[in-house]
């Protein structure tokens, strides 16, 4: 009598098999997230030293680039790399949260943590999906401008 209408909709169980799959998934997801954090660190390292690397390149007369142009280019490279690092950081963070919450959920049979874990996985894929949409949009724009440019050339 007191059963709500939602109960029969979800009769899926986290049985022994699925919990084993989820545990393995969480372990590997955590590993991927940590590798991702290390890569983010490397990207930021490159971003920090890009300016000085380009400055030293111009000091030794590489390619005839003057100091101001090298500094400008260095700044641009730094900003681009920081942006890439930030964009890469968030999916890794979501993945890390998914993995840690899933491990806690499986250890304690915690329904709340299981929901939080899935929510982070969703956020991770949504972030990647939105990035892909933006990327495809840029490609479509480039194609349109390319065709227009070729038509007026």
């Amino acid at each position: 009598m007191e059963q709500n209408t939602q109960a029969p909709l979800f009769e899926l169980q986290v049985d022994h098999q699925s919990s084993s799959y989820l545990a393995d998934t969480a372990r590997w997801a955590k590993f991927i997230a940590i590798v991702g954090f290390v890569l983010c660190g490397l990207i930021l390292l490159v971003a920090i030293f890009a300016g000085s690397m380009l400055a030293s390149f111009s000091r030794f007369g590489g390619g005839g680039v003057d100091g101001v142009a090298a500094a400008g280019l260095g700044g641009f490279v730094t900003v681009v790399y920081i942006l890439i690092g930030l964009l890469y950081f968030f999916p890794c963070l979501y993945l890390f949260n998914f993995a840690t919450k899933m491990q806690v959920a499986l250890r304690n049979n915690d329904q709340e943590q299981l929901g939080q874990s899935f929510r982070n996985l969703k956020a991770c894929y949504r972030f990647i999906g939105v990035l892909l949409i933006i990327y495809l949009g840029f490609i479509a724009l480039a194609l349109i401008f390319g065709v227009i440019g070729a038509a007026f050339h």
Binding site: F10, Q111, F118, K122, I128
Partner: peptide, 29 residues
């Protein structure tokens, strides 16, 4: 047995469904 009593609840199921929608989109791209 205690794991068998543990269910994917309504919210968890819906979140997982949304996750699979985005995962499917990423895989198609």
């Amino acid at each position: 047995q205690s794991l068998l009593e543990w269910r994917v609840d309504y919210d968890g199921g819906n979140i997982l469904k949304e996750t699979t929608r985005w995962a499917r989109f990423v895989s198609i791209v």
